[in-house]
Design a protein around this nucleic acid. Structure first.
Lengths: 346, 346
DNA sequence: AAGCCGAGCGAAAACGTTTTCGTGTTAAAA
DNA sequence: TTTTAACACGAAAACGTTTTCGCTCGGCTT
């Protein structure tokens, strides 16, 4: 078990100085061709690679970006990571991930672990708990220490930094419009509590679409699900809530849900009540995940392009890292959604 | 934008030496209580944190583990990462991920990027292309340089290292046995080509189960899908292949698939052919993902416990990292599967 | 008065690089 | 023959830590 070889060892073996070895390997003209070849041959033989940590220390940059997301077992976030990793790798960066697990404390701890020199910048999506508490001091502190942050999807206006978001409002408005165009008269929405910014925006899109069609919103058609319900065990009670929604409104003929799962479960309930999809009732979800694609009937959905978001976020961050001198200016990139039509709509 | 403060700056401000500051912060008794308090107060005020990179260089360990997986937009792998991240964090380690994207070259490059000091050890699952080419030199090189590797799920016997796998053979045997016990007379299997070790083992489990029931295998009932078919576009041709499977064997009354997706698609085909699930035909899949849970009918499946695999792998690696002196000995941990019964079986 | 001891602190090395600035040798120019 | 310039290389600093080893100074013991 031979440890990795260093410049010093090469220098000793070849009876030259460390500087000479370093220069020879970087093909400096300062060094004679003879020596260069000798050193390079030796280095190749022993498979020399510069130690990354030493380089990071010297250059004061790590070529690593930190990603903090609320959850990884989630199609959308996984796609984003894939996008980030793709461009990071292409541009010579590594990616180090931290999971906040939707918890404020873990988010803070994770950021502290990474902000002490391990990375050059952050890409992150805010934990639900953080959004609820509205405590953003850790972001501001990080930024004020000169470490750039790019936020995606779950962002917040109070923080001044680059952002990559999707047009939640437009996406949901389009979806609901589609339902209305398809002849739905009673469109319900299944959404989340308002503190999740995307839930709020998507609800707003729903309202605007109704408005465009001169229809008035009916609070009986709006189901705001408590997020705890998503935690696996509570799926049954979610099902119950949806069933009650149907009971309150026997005429529902269209449902827009702010995520895949809500839509799938709603379809299940509808089927149980004997409704035919899409003839009696039509469905549109949000986020084009594996469920939408393979459900029966397959679900029409608003495509969110997670991978593209990741790519853009990484490009944004790395651009900033590599042009520090430039004057500060922050952008917000909006990724367009698209409606992917499948069997759950006419 | 104030840069992070260093020992040197504190020393200068307080007019003491760097060593004194360092010792004071670590509460060394060498330093008078007065000085200690003064230094600590100052450090707290300026929110001093030791630079991780400098520590890594000095200690020759990074407290970071590298994870290389073939794909992240995949429920199983995401679960594993979650498990890894969980225990890594708990034990004070960071996690840096690389995606091989099932490509040999990317796997090699990723490992090289990380093996130069950035991490203390690897956790990985082998890319399909690597398995096909059977070229494992990069693993052996890494190991021989003193960097421990823990492999999970897709492992290979040629490499001597710690491993975490599931009992693929037993898992699939149990599943098929279940089908046979439930009265199935013609059980088909949808599996992958043999070079994917897990596919091979799962096929073997199928055969053994048949054998136990004194039934002979019928090659007409074994569908070995070419893996390319999984790449989204080719789903239709997969559907076609499955349809042909049904056509060749009109009496099929049970199907075991080596992953979720195959099972879901097979169910779809069966339904199209007018078969009732689970009365006319029963299904069992492998890997308990989101599809199994939310399909209609929900899919009975072999639970793979990805998160637990990740946790065990991380513990194994960190144990090794923190007891280097110990004599070398490698373990293979087998995670038991369990059959999760749902609506697709009687 | 000479020696000793402990308390409190600093200098320096080490981790592995890159880079700036010498410095010595040799060949060409004056 | 002397000055100069090019060439080839080495010493050392720097990045930010931790830790070992000395050093100084005061007070204490003989």
């Amino acid at each position: 078990m031979k440890r990795k070889i260093t410049l010093k060892q090469i220098a000793r073996e070849l009876d030259v100085s460390i500087s000479t070895v370093s220069k020879a390997l970087r093909n400096s003209i300062e060094i004679s061709e003879d020596t260069r070849e000798k050193v390079q041959a030796f280095a190749k033989l022993y498979n020399y690679r510069p130690n990354n940590i030493a380089l990071s220390l010297k250059n004061r940059k790590t070529k690593t970006i930190g990603v903090i997301i609320p959850e990884i077992v989630h199609h959308f976030f996984a796609q984003v990571i894939r996008g980030i990793e793709l461009v990071a790798n292409k541009r010579g960066y590594n990616v180090i991930v931290g999971l906040s697990n939707e918890s404020f404390d873990k988010e803070v701890i994770n950021m502290q672990m990474l902000a002490n020199g391990s990375i050059d910048g952050f890409i992150l999506s805010i934990a639900k708990e953080t959004l609820q508490q509205q405590d953003y001091h850790h972001f501001n502190e990080t930024i004020s220490q000169g470490m750039p942050i790019v936020m995606f999807d779950r962002v917040v206006n109070d923080i001044i930094c680059d952002k990559v978001i999707i047009d939640d409002l437009r996406g949901s408005k389009n979806a609901v419009t589609k339902l209305l165009e398809n002849g739905c008269k009673q469109v319900a929405i299944i959404t989340t509590k308002d503190y999740v910014s995307v839930g709020k925006l998507r609800t707003q899109g729903y309202l605007e679409a109704l408005d465009d069609f001169k229809m008035s919103a009916n609070s009986n058609l709006i189901l705001k699900v408590d997020d705890e319900l998503l935690s696996e065990d509570h799926l049954d009670s979610l099902e119950l809530e949806i069933e009650q929604l149907f009971n309150r409104n026997s005429k529902i003929d269209g449902i827009f849900a702010v995520n895949e799962l809500y839509a799938i479960i709603a379809m299940k309930v509808a089927r149980k009540l004997g409704l035919k999809i899409p003839n009696d009732i039509q469905f549109i979800g949000f986020t084009d995940g594996v469920l939408s694609k393979h459900a029966t009937p397959s679900l029409t959905t608003v495509g969110q392009h997670g991978q593209e978001m990741g790519e853009k976020a990484a490009d944004l961050l790395i651009d900033k890292l590599e042009h520090e001198e430039e004057e500060e200016h922050f952008q917000t990139i909006i990724i367009e959604t698209n409606l992917i039509e499948r069997e759950s709509t006419k």
